[in-house]
Simulated assay, not measured.
Amino acid sequence: MKPLLRNCLLLVLMLSASALALSIRPTQKIAALGPAIDLGTIIPREFGDWREEQHNFVQMVDPQQKEVIDRIYTQTLSRTYVNSKGYRIMLAIAYGDDQRDSMQIHYPEVCYPAQGFLLKNKEKGDLITEGGIIPVVRILTSLGQRDEPITYWTVVGDTVFQGGLQKKLAEMRYGLNGKIPDGMLIRISSIDSDTEEAYEIQANFANQMLAALAPGYRHKINGNL
């Protein structure tokens, strides 16, 4: 093949690839298709046996520096709740209306060690709720004498994921349909040396919180179960 013809063919292929990439470039945020997200309003300050503790006695761990959080997330919510027995739960929710490669959610097993915590264990599990089963990740962290078991799950669009591959495939599926998915990370933790007890109480907390949400928002947080 003559060099001129070969170069022309390469140019045509490059232009075609660019046109295809542009044609399937996602442009519509799915966050704009549903009810507006206002975490402070969506999540009740009291539900079941839990109420927000106005004066937090527990130091909550910030998953990233403020400037990074402001860049990645559209909204964040951090509260401490206490039940009738005095047990405290720390709830943190991070929401981003643009869940693409440059705006990826940061996970607790990365954020906690970055702040000096020791990651002692990580396992996948199921959170059984009245609305269905939510696949979650449970990790155990420690800082000095402080043990902090954590339960969290991630939602992209309308699906909960435990693994990065499934999450990436969902993002690609939305992208091929011209849509930009939103994402949410829900983290529940407590300072407790009894890990099994902590996870049990965290499951109870999650159930009561989800039951108190309006159906539309419940589906947004539990992956449309």
Rank of each mutant, 00 (worst) to 15 (best):
D192Q: 15
E67D: 14
N224Q: 11
G132W: 02
R218C: 12
L213F: 02
K120V: 11
F161P: 01
V160H: 00
L39I: 08
H106Q: 08
Q166G: 13
G178C: 10
V58E: 09
L165F: 11
G216H: 06
L176M: 13
L4W: 10
I139Y: 01
N207R: 15
G48K: 12
P113D: 09
E109M: 09
Q115T: 06
S102R: 13
Y107T: 13
L185V: 15
G116C: 08
N56R: 08
S102C: 05
I201W: 04
I221G: 02
V110N: 08
G86S: 06
M172N: 02
M90I: 04
R45Q: 14
Q75P: 05
D126S: 10
L185W: 06
G34A: 11
T41H: 04
L213E: 02
I89A: 13
L140F: 04
I134W: 02
P3H: 09
V155Y: 03
N222F: 02
R100A: 11
S142F: 04
W50K: 06
Q28C: 03
Q59D: 11
A114T: 09
D98L: 07
I42M: 09
P135F: 07
E53V: 08
I69K: 13
Q202H: 05
L5V: 15
S189H: 00
N224T: 07
D49T: 08
E67Q: 12
Y81M: 10
S190F: 02
A94P: 02
G34D: 08
E123S: 12
K124Q: 10
I30K: 01
S193N: 15
T76S: 10
T151K: 08
M209D: 03
D101C: 01
L213W: 03
G86W: 04
I30F: 00
V136I: 14
Y107V: 15
H106K: 09
S18N: 05
G96N: 15
E171R: 15
L213G: 02
G164T: 01
E109Q: 14
L77N: 06
L5G: 02
M172G: 01
W50Y: 10
